Simulated assay, not measured.
Amino acid sequence: MTRRLLASIHDVSPRFEAQVDRLAERLDCHLGAARFAMLVVPDHWDRAPLADDKPFQARLRRWADAGVEMFLHGWRHRDDAPAGFKARHMTAGEGEFSHLDHYEARQRLRRGRAVVEDAIGRPVAGFIAPAWLYSPAALDAVRDEGFALAEDHMKVWRPADGRVLARGPVITWASRSPARIRSSLFFAGLAGYGLQPLPTVRVAVHPGDTGVPALLASLDTTLSRLLPGRIAARYADLA
C-alpha cells in the first residue's frame, strides 16, 4: 500500500505574495520541488484581484508548469452572512461557502474557476472551500460544476459520485491569537504521531503561519515525523 503525504498552501493571492514564497520554499526543502498544492483565491477579501495582477498570474503559471496543483479556493474567502457563532469564533468571518445557496455558489465557482484557469493555462485540480466549510447547497454546486476533487477538514472526495478518497483530519496551524497558536501546536504535536497509521495524511499551511516562528518550527517537525515511509504525493494520485 502506498503511503502518502499531501501538503497545501492556502489563501494564495497577490495579497500574500511574500508569505506564499516563504511557504513554497519551505515545502520544497522538505518535499522536493513542487510536490504540493496551492489554493488560489481570485480576489481575497475584495482587496487583491488576481485578474488584474499579470505578474502574479505569471508566477502561478510557472508554479503550475513545474507541477504544483492549483485548486480554486472560494471567490473572495470572506463570509458575507450575518455574523454568528461559527463566523465569529471559528472562522473569523472567512467561511465564504458555509451559507451560500445553490445559485450563488455556482456563480462564484464559475467566476473563480475562469480567473484561475486563465492565469494558469490549464484546468484547476479541484475546489476546496475557505475554512473547509460548505453549505449543503454549495456541496451540490461543486458537484454540478464538475470539479474533479474536493476537500473538507476530515476527507478528500470526488464530487461526481461522492467517493471518499482519503480520510483523517488535516494538520494545520492557527496564528490569529496566542490561544489558537497554543492549541494548534498541541494538536500538531499529537498528530505527528497519532495520524501515523493513516495511509494518507494532509498538512495545510497559511500565510499567517510565516509570522510565528513556533508555527514554522512545528511544521518542520511535523513533516520530519510524517515523511519517513511516505511519498510526497499529489491530490490527483488519489483519483
Rank of each mutant, 00 (worst) to 15 (best):
A66N: 11
L215Q: 08
H44I: 01
R158M: 00
G84F: 14
T222Y: 09
F36V: 14
V156F: 03
W173Q: 06
A179T: 10
A18D: 09
S175Q: 04
A37Q: 09
G67A: 00
T221Q: 14
R167H: 03
A236E: 05
L50V: 09
P123G: 07
G208S: 12
R106M: 15
L216E: 14
A131V: 15
Q107K: 08
D209V: 06
A119Q: 03
M38Q: 01
R35M: 00
I128H: 13
L227S: 05
H77L: 07
P130Y: 09
M70W: 13
V68M: 12
Y134W: 08
Q19L: 05
T91D: 07
D21E: 03
G229A: 03
D11Q: 06
L190V: 13
V142I: 02
R3S: 00
D209R: 08
E25W: 09
P207N: 04
A166R: 14
R113I: 03
L139P: 12
L216A: 12
W157Y: 04
H206P: 14
R22E: 01
S175V: 02
L238S: 06
E17K: 03
V40K: 01
G84W: 13
R3Y: 01
L223A: 06
E17H: 05
K86P: 14
H89W: 14
A58H: 13
